[in-house]
Amino acid sequence: MIETIQDFFRTMADTYPKWNFIFFHEPAQWDRVVSGFFVTLQLSVACVILSVIIGIVGAWAQGSPSRTIRWIVQGYIQFFRNTPPLIQLLFFYFALGQFTPTVTGPDGWTEQPIISNVGWAIISLSFFAGAFNVEIFRSGIEAVPKSTLEAAESLGFTRAQTYTNITFPLALRVSLPALNNNLINLVKTTTQAIAIAVPELLYEMVSIWNDYASAQNAAMAVLFFTYIALVGVLAFGMNRWEAKLLVPGFGKARR
């Protein structure tokens, strides 16, 4: 089966020299694409989870009675929303990367920083998307009427019980459309990790077409449609979730 596919693309490369899908008939190149894809997936999943956690914690901290904490969160949001993510990446990796300690690598003699470039990409992109998530979740929480929470209080719910049973499920429903948008944007932004040489899909594809000029068109086409598919899957999943959580008379259904 695999041989047939490889033969097909090898013949295709011979017939149309400009469309050499080299990664479909050369296992070494296929491995590069797969590893790049998984780094992109890893970046996306890690950043989505981390940025959502940052969003929840930040939104909770914004309701803090301490003015200092509120100012810190506000400052964080302002900084990360206003600056291009590319400059954030460069800043995190080059400026902050200077100050992190190093450890001896697995080979026993090279010194490696504790946080790799992949690590910095995850941190930087998570903080970038997290800044938007804080705002998204906060407005979701604000959209829950105080009187509904009062009803829960009068039924004997504790603060924590009210938060987990009432506030959070309702705030989530309000936040989902905006969250959806932001996470899609986050997945698209992971490509910028190429700036600090993170071997993700774009990086691997660019190196393949640099190595094999004949593979350029093929690599571009595959790259383009892989991202469309990735974003499509995420959007589809989020929309399904949104539809599943939709309750009559609340949120979207009202308009």
């Binding site: 899609i184 698209k188 932004t189 992971t190 490509t191 910028q192 190429i194 774009l202 660019v206 077409w209 350029q216 068109n217 571009m220 790259l223 383009f224 991202y227 469309i228 974003v231 499509g232 959007a235």
Partner: peptide
């Protein structure tokens, strides 16, 4: 749909090279 949902950087790379 295609151009709204693809990363800007990917579009830049493709256009710069083609």
């Amino acid at each position: 749909q295609l151009f709204r949902n693809s990363p800007w950087l990917v579009l830049l790379f493709i256009v710069m090279l083609t």
